[in-house]
């Protein structure tokens, strides 16, 4: 049987080098509501145009996770900070890159604190 092995000694994705104060989950919610909710929110029109089932990000994650994990990001309890940062700064599929003039480094730390507030 063919197997591919991935070895990684360390995660090397960027860390919060510039965060001076400890991140605020409360402010993270404010930033999330402004920048993320229009695609990743829980409340959507009942029949989205073009057949989507919910807001674009929520609908896409619903298809991806098939009910095994919550499609609404705010309900997740397992998100890795590095993954959130990678997706926000790198984009993923139709979701484009978000610049630091839009969501600053400290605001991103706050969003991460908000989305990981219930992590195990």
């Amino acid at each position: 049987m063919r197997v591919t092995i991935v070895m990684a000694a360390l995660a090397v994705l960027a860390t919060a080098a510039f965060a001076q104060d400890s991140p605020s989950a409360d402010n993270g919610k404010v930033v999330f509501d402004k920048w993320c909710t229009p695609c990743h929110g829980a409340v959507a029109p009942p029949e989205m145009p073009f057949g989507g089932d919910g807001l674009p990000g929520t609908s896409a994650l619903g298809v991806k996770y098939r009910g095994e994990l919550p499609a609404v990001l705010e309900e997740r309890t397992d998100l890795a900070p590095e993954f959130i940062e990678t997706v926000v700064r790198g984009g993923l599929f139709g979701m484009p890159i978000t610049r630091k003039t839009e969501v600053s480094e400290s605001e991103l730390e706050d969003v991460i604190a908000y989305l990981t507030r219930n992590n195990n």
Partner: peptide, 14 residues
């Protein structure tokens, strides 16, 4: 093909 590896948790999550 199956993927297998040894990584830290964050890399694995990604």
């Amino acid at each position: 093909v199956p993927l297998t590896g040894l990584t830290d948790r964050a890399t694995l999550f990604c």
